[in-house]
Amino acid sequence: MALANRIIPCLDVDNGRVVKGVNFVDIKDAGDPVEIARRYNIEGADELCMLDITATHEDRNTMVQTVQAIASEVFIPLTVGGGIRTLDNIKTMLHAGADKVAINSAAVSNPEFVQQAAERFGSQCIVVAIDAKQVADNHWEIFTHGGRKETGIDAIEWAQEMERLGAGELLVTSMDRDGTKNGFDLPLMQRLSETVQIPIIASGGVGNLQHLVDGVLEGKADAVLAASIFHFGTYTIGEAKAFMADAGIEMRIE
């Protein structure tokens, strides 16, 4: 027995409501992040991730209340991302009960922010989210603004730089695969996982359970993140864990 691989369901939250509809047969309010978090916890999620996609600054307080509500009854690690730009943003989320924050575009515009955040709060709670797109064979670059804005930064070098500055984990999303249901960008995940010493969370493209297995066995990911396959009830987290365990992957199965 050994350290288990992790399954992390991810919720996109807009002004306190889960978007990209969730479709469980037995929950009353499919838009309530607290009810969905509770459900994922019961199913055996190893961690939870919530991304705040709220457009306006004023509505961000709603996210804080959501985090407080979830953290009061779901006792697994909770990562909150979206709009994390200042040390105060991080402090607010940690006080609300988040365990980690995911920093994305603020890391690109100001890499020193990652270092400041790691020094202040500890690397264990600093996840750097990397959105990467393939631009040539074996070459990926960082994109921001949901994949619309190119930065010209090499993804592998960027991952090393983020590790050096104190990131505790990397959440890697392939912009080529996100939403396609064609599986993770395995060469990207593998290159990154073999380059850095910190854990890699693979994201973007999961359409079936074999994709999760591939992400671990071929992509060498330490954790796999998925949204729609769980939201729509295509598979439960329990089914996903059993499938991965059958493939020989160490999983936490209670």
């Binding site: 288990a4 190893d46 264990q124 910190i198 330490d222």
Partner: peptide, 12 residues
């Protein structure tokens, strides 16, 4: 195979 450090996640 080299193990990642930090040791992060669920262990027995």
């Amino acid at each position: 195979l080299r193990l990642k450090v930090p040791h992060m996640g669920w262990n027995n």
